[in-house]
Design a protein around this nucleic acid. Sequence first.
DNA 1: TCACATTTGTCCGTATGTATC
DNA 2: AGATACATACGGACAAATGTG
Lengths: 245, 245
Amino acid sequence: MIPDTSSKIIFTPIKNKRTFEEISLEIKRLIFKGILKPNDKLPSEIELARQFNVGRQTLREALRLLELSGFIAIQKGSTGGPIIEDTIFNTISNSFLDAFLMKKITTEELTIARLETEKGMLKYVIDNAKDSDIRSLKENIVQAKKHAKANIRPFRDNIEFHRLLAKASKNQMFVIMVESIMAIVADFFSRLEPEFDVSKRVIEKHEALLNAIIRRDRDKAMSLLEDHILKVGKRFQKIIDEVRK
Amino acid sequence: MIPDTSSKIIFTPIKNKRTFEEISLEIKRLIFKGILKPNDKLPSEIELARQFNVGRQTLREALRLLELSGFIAIQKGSTGGPIIEDTIFNTISNSFLDAFLMKKITTEELTIARLETEKGMLKYVIDNAKDSDIRSLKENIVQAKKHAKANIRPFRDNIEFHRLLAKASKNQMFVIMVESIMAIVADFFSRLEPEFDVSKRVIEKHEALLNAIIRRDRDKAMSLLEDHILKVGKRFQKIIDEVRK
DNA sequence: TCACATTTGTCCGTATGTATC
DNA sequence: AGATACATACGGACAAATGTG
């Protein structure tokens, strides 16, 4: 009898995904369940292909997905092979940078989002920062000053300052949001010619902000942060405009 | 003469990356430069492999990277092949979901980040929303009510409401941030048994919020939004606790 | 409806590069 | 330095999907 395709019984497809996608998902599930943990070593490509009963190429494509998604790293050499690793946050910030490079995000949009994100985060920093966080932030400023004195542009230290702030909020969502925003900012400043650099002046702003945080002066910290981010944003915009001229 | 490795001339490595990574980057650059645009059709795998002078396996691994990063889509069949496509935002929200499933982000952290992000976004919504945005939001509420009456859980409409809000802020960073957060929320509610569902009550909250936005009543809108997100967050937490018991 | 061409998906065999012991 | 075990890469082959005449 011919199947009645008009009936309400709908057959679900036996196989939705490509083989390499299924393998990738299978390994991801083992990680989600906690059966596979960071630093666990996976069998070699050949052995994995044998166990999943697939060809080498198929298995390699599955590894590519897992690698790019931040679930595994691959080491070459005799004791090498795939290792469970957690670099998802890295993956996310790379994608944000891609989006910026594709001009899907403008500098104005970035500055506004940065402003609101860091402002929203700041009260949690003031409430939740441990002594160790404060120490890290102080140490960051010392380092930045040292670099500035040695005529090394301290923009990497200055970017790290905001990462440390996010960490002190004790909220991983803020960590990844700030990480993503700063990945774009870092990419921008790393391409910058030294004469455009203003990162020395930034250190003082960071120091003032940190002192307000230590005093738990929420209003002062908020206005310092807002002023600082908007200034950097304007500088950002100005440089882009000049380059485009 | 033996090369003086102690000299200051440092040879940069000829090849940093694996071949498939270089190919992926090369195609990405063409996209960044605007030479390749969405809907442009790329040559077939075999032709691309020929042009890059690599094997097909290597080229396929490059395509996997581009596909997962949201730069291309691949269609099978006679007129198929790789097509330039822009689904980067999709890629990012998938990674956030991965991070949540790996328990790198807790429900409390998600709720707090959601609260601060949407609050920070709200003033831009009030300032920048066009009539068309308001119409979309109104239409969303009509749809949600229709679904609720037909006994179809309107949680997808309710999630869409927040996406529409982000769109009305006219800031792509907010769009992707809210998209990422709501991807996690959507995943959560889609697994939920119907008896736990509260999405009918949510519609009223959305309606009140929308009215405050239309009236440009910033304070009222802000407090309605805060109240709504915190309630959903508590519900979220409660269900997770019950499941874990 | 059917046969055909094109393209992706998959497998296999082989060779080379590379890190470790 | 040599052996070993692994990833990287190439080329050929066939299966499966898909649009076209």
